[in-house]
């Protein structure tokens, strides 16, 4: 009987460890910034969703294109209508793997590299970027900055506004993950 009790305890423990394995963030921030002599353009979303499997290091990040907000709403309309074609490609997503150990049980800052595929405008491209992961109070805070070449994802810039939109846009990601409950 004693043994049975021990087993039960062990099962309970393993279950709690299991729950810690998946980290989820439902309000991740994503923004991009295009800067030219003519114009600065910024789009911000606070409605990204992301999930990490701490065991394998797999990470998925998704954001709806229509959730990006712009200061000038006509730009927002153009962003969805003419560039992202959000009705055809509603979601931009990243699927990849965190390279490097992250221990959720040890608070601290982890500099890791993340590799994977970024799908924007229906076109997928392999990316590799550095990210800062901060573990504390059972949460994981992630920050990453990388550049995306617009032409890589089949997004055409008409010659008339060619000088207003940068060839590379800077993408910033900020997400706070909590263990799955």
């Amino acid at each position: 009987m004693k043994n049975t009790c021990l087993f039960m305890l062990f099962i309970l423990l393993s279950c709690s460890v299991n729950a810690q394995q998946i980290l989820i963030c439902n309000n991740a921030k994503a923004s991009f910034f295009s800067s030219t002599v003519m114009e600065d353009i910024e789009g911000k979303s606070a409605a990204g969703g992301s999930v990490i499997d701490t065991k394998s290091g797999n990470i998925i990040f998704k954001v709806k294109n229509t959730s990006f907000q712009f200061k000038k709403k006509l730009m927002q309309e153009h962003f969805n209508e003419n560039y992202m074609e959000s009705d055809k490609y509603p979601v931009s997503e990243f699927k990849g793997t965190i390279k490097g150990p992250v221990n959720m049980d040890v608070d601290g800052t982890y500099k890791v590299s993340i590799e994977g595929n970024l799908n924007i405008h229906g076109i997928s491209k392999a990316y590799k970027t550095q990210a800062d992961l901060v573990v504390g109070k059972g949460m994981l805070n992630a920050n990453a900055v990388f550049k995306v070449k617009i032409a890589d994802h089949g997004i055409e810039i008409p010659t008339l506004v060619f000088k207003n939109i940068a060839e590379y846009v800077e993408v910033r990601i900020q997400a706070t993950y909590l263990p799955k409950k």
Partner: peptide, 29 residues
């Protein structure tokens, strides 16, 4: 039986999620 059961649980608990399984964890916006 308990032994087998707990061992199974342990195994699944430790197994890594595939990308597809992981995607299911992500609440679809």
């Amino acid at each position: 039986r308990l032994l087998v059961f707990s061992a199974l649980l342990l195994l699944t608990g430790q197994a890594a999620f595939s990308q597809e399984e992981l995607e299911k964890e992500l609440a679809v916006p």
